[in-house]
């Protein structure tokens, strides 16, 4: 007989009961934690540094104004993926996503906020803008100067997947808009141009930040189609000796929106704080944080101060060229729409 190593064994029933108890304890603690003054900001991929910076500024401001301590929790990921999570129950007090369509789908599919949410804050609820630029390796070895150069054979282009990433959809539309402009609005030629561009893409990451690390850290590809803020940020992170930002001849005006989520803030009792959190983005203090994190501020005075950082280039809007995000989403990114056809065709 083997010696009795487990001399006081516990039955599986006891173990089960214990585990169930712990489980319920955690479930209870989680719901209790939200009743404290904390809000959750569910954001898209490249805003990590922006909101890290902004949150600490806002926490100080809120403490000075109300004497109340507030914790701001952050979650980041591809814009479409994050919207999906909020629809499935991720408890976002505020959403700060990559494009208005993703907030629209939260309003439409889960009715967590009214359909006209975009009218509640100034500038269509977009406190900052950005655009899409090209990031190349130092010295620009492949001689990339504009969108045209991305479809040349032998050029590897890095861009995320438009199905999950907001930035990727802006990238797609920027390229399409350029092609339309060049060929006087010829849709077939634009489609061909974009199809050739995606044939040069070796890997589609799920978010913009994933693509940036693919390009910058893993060293894959010749050119990264990126948010301007993301491109400038990688110059700062990796040093200007490794990359160059190429400003194309024309690009899209990217307008990432913000909104508080009515149903959630009602339940948490955080309506006032969530609203102030977003409104403070429009103040000179908020706009400074925005500009120093490489997003284009709305406020003229701050824009003037950071003039050198943001070159002037002709920018078209999604409303002008594509008739708004709903139309663009349906035409290009819905299941079986143009993006799917292009990717299928490439195989």
């Amino acid at each position: 007989m083997p010696s009795n190593a487990l001399s006081r064994p516990v039955s599986s029933v006891q173990v089960l009961a214990l585990a169930a108890g712990v489980f319920l304890l955690i479930a209870g603690r989680t719901s209790a934690a939200w009743s404290a003054q904390a809000i959750l900001n569910v954001s898209y991929d490249p805003t990590r540094e922006l909101y890290q910076d902004y949150n600490s500024v806002f926490v100080k401001y809120w403490k000075a104004r109300t004497g109340q301590d507030v914790t701001i929790n952050q979650s980041h990921g591809g814009s479409g993926k994050q919207a999906r999570a909020v629809i499935d129950g991720l408890d976002a007090d505020v959403v700060t996503l990559g494009l208005a369509y993703d907030v629209d789908s939260i309003a439409a599919k889960a009715q967590l906020l009214p359909a006209d949410w975009q009218k509640r804050l100034p500038e269509n609820s977009c406190p900052y803008t950005s655009t899409i630029v090209l990031l190349v390796r130092k010295g620009n070895p492949k001689g990339i100067h504009d969108w045209d150069d991305l479809v040349k054979p032998g050029v590897e282009v890095i861009t995320p997947n438009p199905k999950t990433s907001g930035g990727a959809r802006w990238n797609f539309l920027a390229a399409w808009g350029y092609a339309l402009k060049k060929d006087n609005g010829d849709e077939a030629k634009a489609r061909d141009f974009v199809a050739r561009l995606y044939r040069n893409v070796p890997v589609l990451d799920s978010g913009a930040r994933g693509s940036t690390t693919t390009f910058a850290e893993r060293g894959i590809g010749d050119v990264l189609i990126a948010w301007e803020n993301e491109a400038l940020m990688s110059l700062k992170e990796f040093g200007p000796s490794r990359f160059e930002v190429i400003t194309p001849s024309v690009s899209v005006l990217a307008e990432p929106p913000v909104a508080w989520v009515d149903k959630v803030v009602e339940r948490h009792g955080t309506a006032r704080i969530a609203r102030s959190y977003l409104e403070y983005l429009y103040t000179p203090e908020g706009q400074s944080v925005i500009a120093r994190n490489f997003y284009r501020p709305r406020l003229a005075s701050i824009r003037e101060k950071y003039r050198a950082q943001f070159p002037d280039l002709p920018l078209f809007t999604v409303d002008e060229v594509f008739g708004g995000w709903s139309a663009a989403q349906k035409k290009f990114f819905a299941d079986g729409a143009i993006f799917d056809q292009i990717v299928q065709g490439a195989k």
């Binding site: 955690i26 479930a27 989680t30 499935d88 991720l90």
Partner: peptide
Amino acid sequence: GVRTPMGEWLADHGLRIIFAEP
């Protein structure tokens, strides 16, 4: 998830399962 009957019931009772530790 909250879009399902079970998830809705849980949410109504203040229990968070998905997107939380449980």
